[in-house]
Simulated scan of single mutants.
Amino acid sequence: MEKRVGRRGFLVSGAVVGAGALVTACTSNEPAAAPSSAAPQATTAGTDNDQPGEKVVIGFSAPAADHGWIAAIAKNAEAQAKQYSDVEFKPVEPTNDINQQISAVESLIQAKVNALVILPNDGEQLNQVARRATDAGIPVINLDRVFPDKLSYRTWIGGDNYGMGVAAGHFIGDRLKQAGVSNPVILEIQGIATLPLTQDRSKGFADALKTYGFSVTAQQDAKFTVESGTQVASNLLQAHKKIDAIWNHDDDQGIGVLAAIKEAGRDEFFMVGGAGSANAMRDIQADSGVLKATVTYSPTMASSAIKLARLIAQGKGMSDLVEQQVPQSITLASETITKDNAAQYLPLGFES
Rank of each mutant, 00 (worst) to 15 (best):
V5G: 01
G14N: 14
G14T: 11
V16C: 08
V17Q: 13
A21I: 10
V23D: 11
N29H: 09
E30C: 07
P31I: 10
A39W: 00
A39L: 07
A42F: 04
A42L: 08
A45L: 11
D50R: 11
G53A: 14
G53V: 06
E54V: 13
K55E: 13
K55P: 02
I58L: 05
G59K: 05
F60C: 09
A62R: 00
D66C: 02
G68F: 00
W69E: 03
Q80T: 11
A81T: 07
V87M: 03
F89D: 03
K90L: 10
K90V: 06
P91K: 08
V92E: 13
V92K: 09
E93T: 15
E93F: 06
E93L: 12
E93V: 14
T95A: 13
D97A: 12
I98S: 12
Q110P: 00
N114M: 02
L116T: 01
V117L: 08
V117N: 07
L119C: 12
P120H: 05
N121G: 08
N121A: 06
G123N: 10
L126S: 05
L126A: 05
L126E: 02
N127E: 06
Q128K: 13
Q128H: 03
V129M: 03
R131M: 11
T134W: 03
A136K: 14
D144F: 02
R145M: 13
V146S: 13
F147G: 02
D149F: 02
K150I: 04
L151K: 15
I157P: 01
G158D: 09
D160E: 10
G163W: 04
R175W: 03
L176D: 10
K177E: 11
V181E: 04
V185I: 15
I186G: 07
I192N: 11
A193N: 13
L197Y: 07
L197K: 01
Q199H: 01
D200Y: 08
A206R: 15
Y212D: 06
G213W: 04
F214G: 05
S215E: 14
S215C: 03
D221R: 02
K223E: 12
F224K: 02
V226L: 12
G229D: 06
V232F: 05
N235F: 01
L236R: 02
A245Y: 09
I246K: 03
D251K: 08
D252T: 15
I255Q: 11
V257C: 10
V257W: 00
A259D: 08
A260R: 00
G265T: 10
E268H: 09
E268G: 11
F269E: 09
F270A: 10
V272P: 00
G276W: 01
N279H: 06
A280G: 09
D287S: 15
D287M: 09
A293I: 06
Y297A: 15
S298N: 15
P299K: 08
S303L: 08
A305M: 11
L308I: 14
R310H: 01
I312G: 07
A313T: 06
G315L: 11
K316D: 09
G317Q: 11
M318W: 03
M318I: 15
D320V: 13
V322W: 02
E323V: 14
Q324P: 03
Q325K: 15
V326L: 10
T331W: 01
L332I: 04
S334Y: 07
E335Q: 15
T336Y: 04
T338R: 04
T338F: 05
D340M: 04
Y345I: 12
P347Q: 12
